[in-house]
Amino acid sequence: MAKTMPLVGEEFVAGYRLQTEWATLIAAAFFFGKIGAGLFLMSLFTDSSVGALVGLLIVLIGKGGAHLLYLGRPERFWRALTKPGTSWVARGFWAMMVMMVSGALFLLAEPGSGVWWAAQIIAGVTAFIVAVYDGFLMNSSPSIPLWNTAMMPVLCLFYSLLGGTSLTLFLVDFGLTTVTIEETLLSNLEIILLVTNLIVVILYLLSMTNGTAAAKESLRLLLKGSFAPAFYILAIGVGLVFTLFMAYFIGVAGGAGVVALITLADLIGHYFIFFLFLRAGVYAPVLGKLTL
């Protein structure tokens, strides 16, 4: 369908319509879920119990809190566990619950014991699901072509790992935890993930150029429309380019202040890229071109 119709609001006119329901709070929930799960996964990799604890708390308080604030009927939140067979919301909720329980067991159990190993594996798998399920949730909306792509879970995974790596470096540089691998290795991993994320974002946007008219309208909004300033400055400029520049040319050698700045810039970019992807979601008109 060629884009011959306007972008409209709630007026009684046929056209492309913006997605408006999932915005600030859902973006916050996705953001906290990804960085918390990423930090937890990185903590398993670097053997940092403080990192694992902080990761769990970010998911529980940040993600859980944002979801509860967003729900129309938060007192019924438990009902969202009902249908994991078909609903990614339910699957994500289940993964989050199991991650909390197994993560707590992992932190409390005797290191090296059977319970410790089992809890570590279960918590790791469920943290991975928490990191990527947002992508599947958005991908499962046939209505919004910008989200309905297999690249969305990939984007979520890489952003989650990047957020986790940045936060691990932050905790290490501020003396809040120790890790079993070299800090320079973590720093190099962050640079690799920043480059990877930049490539994945570019590929994501390129894939939209071959999409439907609604996908192209979303792309126009992101790259040339009302969301373009925030996209270029916050999501790409601060979140990836500035972070990459700082991490590559200064990095951990710059001390805790620089690492804090890199982490902050990374997190700002992380929040805004998904917030903008949510906001730029466009529905196609109900009917295509009508005949005379």
Partner: peptide
């Protein structure tokens, strides 16, 4: 529960 997943989908 008002999650609006249906609304978006």
């Amino acid at each position: 529960v008002g999650c609006r997943a249906c609304y978006v989908a």
